[in-house]
Simulated assay, not measured.
Amino acid sequence: MALLKEWRDKAYSETANKGDLQRLWTEYFQKEKDVYAQLLKNPDEVVKGTVKELADKFGLDIMTMTGFLDGINDSLKEPNPIDDMTEDTEVNLGFDKELLYKNMVNAGADWLYGLEEWNDIFDEDKRKALYKEEKASHTVRKENKVYPNDPCPCGSGKKYKKCHGKNA
């Protein structure tokens, strides 16, 4: 079985005990935070290796490393072949810094986008701008509705229902 399927079956199980899942995710988030803290110390260094080698390097088990690779994949300059990845699959962690920050904001992972290692990468104004840009990208804006008795937006001075709303 591919590692990613195994990870997702375990981490998103519908039948697992809720307490077990909560413990799994609590432990995962702490380990994830530690790995990101290490990666952000040298953000321009592209870490490469097999899944097993990277798991060993960061002190993770294979399943946790698989979850990490799944999470970071959308932020990489070159995505990894995560769908059919095995322990011996060569992967890289060359991430786009701005995209990674925005994806962390989008995921609501304040424990990640709040890491102090970001301070050496982006100044406070840049982090605020990236945060705001990411939040605004998901905001749906509706145009103001024109009601029949409102003045027509064309500026004719007539009510909308007697002007452009006549045929609506």
Rank of each mutant, 00 (worst) to 15 (best):
L39A: 12
L40R: 09
L40Y: 06
L40Q: 09
L40F: 09
L40S: 06
K41F: 01
K41W: 10
P43W: 06
P43M: 04
P43S: 11
P43Y: 06
P43I: 06
D44E: 14
D44A: 03
D44F: 07
E45D: 15
E45M: 08
E45F: 13
V46D: 01
V47C: 00
V47L: 01
V47N: 00
V47A: 01
K48V: 13
K48Y: 02
K48W: 03
K48D: 01
G49D: 12
G49P: 09
G49S: 04
T50Q: 14
V51S: 04
V51K: 09
K52G: 04
K52Q: 14
K52I: 13
K52S: 15
E53I: 14
E53L: 07
L54K: 12
L54W: 07
L54R: 04
L54Y: 09
A55F: 10
A55V: 07
A55Q: 10
A55K: 03
D56H: 07
D56C: 03
D56G: 08
D56N: 13
D56M: 11
K57T: 14
K57N: 08
K57P: 04
F58Y: 15
F58K: 03
G59A: 09
G59L: 07
L60V: 06
L60H: 00
D61R: 11
D61S: 13
I62V: 15
I62H: 09
I62Y: 11
T64L: 00
T64I: 10
T64N: 10
T64G: 02
T66S: 02
T66A: 05
T66G: 06
T66V: 01
F68A: 11
F68Q: 04
F68D: 03
F68N: 05
L69K: 08
L69P: 06
D70Q: 11
D70Y: 12
D70H: 14
D70N: 15
D70T: 08
D70P: 03
G71V: 01
G71S: 15
G71E: 02
G71C: 12
G71Y: 03
I72Y: 00
I72C: 00
I72T: 01
I72F: 00
N73M: 09
N73P: 10
D74L: 05
D74I: 09
D74V: 08
L76D: 13
K77F: 00
E78S: 15
E78A: 14
E78H: 13
E78C: 09
P79L: 15
N80D: 05
N80Q: 04
N80M: 01
N80A: 04
P81R: 09
P81V: 11
P81M: 00
I82N: 11
I82S: 06
D83Y: 13
D84G: 13
D84L: 01
D84A: 01
D84S: 05
M85S: 07
M85C: 11
M85R: 01
M85G: 07
M85P: 03
M85E: 08
T86P: 00
T86D: 12
T86I: 04
T86F: 02
E87F: 06
D88M: 07
T89C: 12
T89E: 07
E90I: 08
E90N: 08
N92K: 07
N92F: 10
N92Q: 15
L93W: 07
L93V: 05
L93T: 05
L93P: 08
L93M: 13
G94A: 10
G94K: 04
G94W: 02
